[in-house]
Design a protein around this nucleic acid. Structure first.
Lengths: 116, 116
DNA sequence: TGTCATGTATAGTATATAGTACACATGACA
DNA sequence: TGTCATGTGTACTATATACTATACATGACA
């Protein structure tokens, strides 16, 4: 599923229940021209900037990290965390490349619970 | 320490022992114009692309992830790993933001040893 | 049946990114 | 003392990114 199709699909679902989710109105709320959002949804142009993608996620009630990923981006706050300790994070992330989901989830939970 | 100063410093050290580490010769080996490398080292222009930064790291015997971090970038292979499972990695990385180095190292070791 | 909002086609713009090409002054050194 | 490599100043360039602005055809609906 491409970024555009995904956005269009979700927006259409919301629109079917609330007509404030038209291209024009959503565009207005996220701060872009309607024609631009239209082109984005049809894949006519690349996904928008991180800021606009975040606004769109908020508007559609979606996870910004997921939408950013679909846009081919990684959140700038995550990048900053990695850049501060590149060796440590690079190694860890590459180690986790093929780890099962539950392992990653488990580690995150342990860290959150202060098991380190 | 900026990217440029760092590169210049390290290249100069190598050059003092081996004159093949002149701006011109390093530039030639990494595939850029000498004037461009000169400008990069003096911070006259932004750091080069990921590919050139990697070539430079190889040339200087440095960790590419570290040099990329100094260039304000995160390796594209890491980004791809994150983008494939954005929710999991986003949560984990944010959890680890203020974790001590040894904790991250410890986790990486556990994962490598298959303790998951 | 007029108006109003809708989606979209077309054309254009500003800024950033990632460099090249060439010329020139300087210092080493044979 | 001529030549050669060195570092760098100046002037461009190509492509990507991230949009805006305007106009138009269409369908709803009062």
């Amino acid at each position: 599923m491409t970024f555009g199709k995904h956005v269009r699909e979700h927006r259409e679902i919301l629109k079917s229940r609330d007509r404030r989710f038209s291209v024009r109105q959503v565009a207005r709320r996220i701060g872009v021209e309607p024609a631009y959002l239209s082109k984005i949804e049809r894949g006519d142009v690349a996904p928008p900037s991180e800021a606009k993608t975040r606004a769109l996620a908020r508007e559609l009630g979606e996870d910004p990290d997921v939408l950013l990923a679909m846009a081919g981006k990684v959140s700038s706050d995550l990048q900053e965390i990695i850049r501060k300790r590149p060796r440590l994070f690079a190694e860890l992330i590459r180690q986790l490349k093929s780890a099962p989901d539950h392992a990653i989830l488990h580690i995150a939970r342990d860290v959150r619970d202060g098991d380190w």
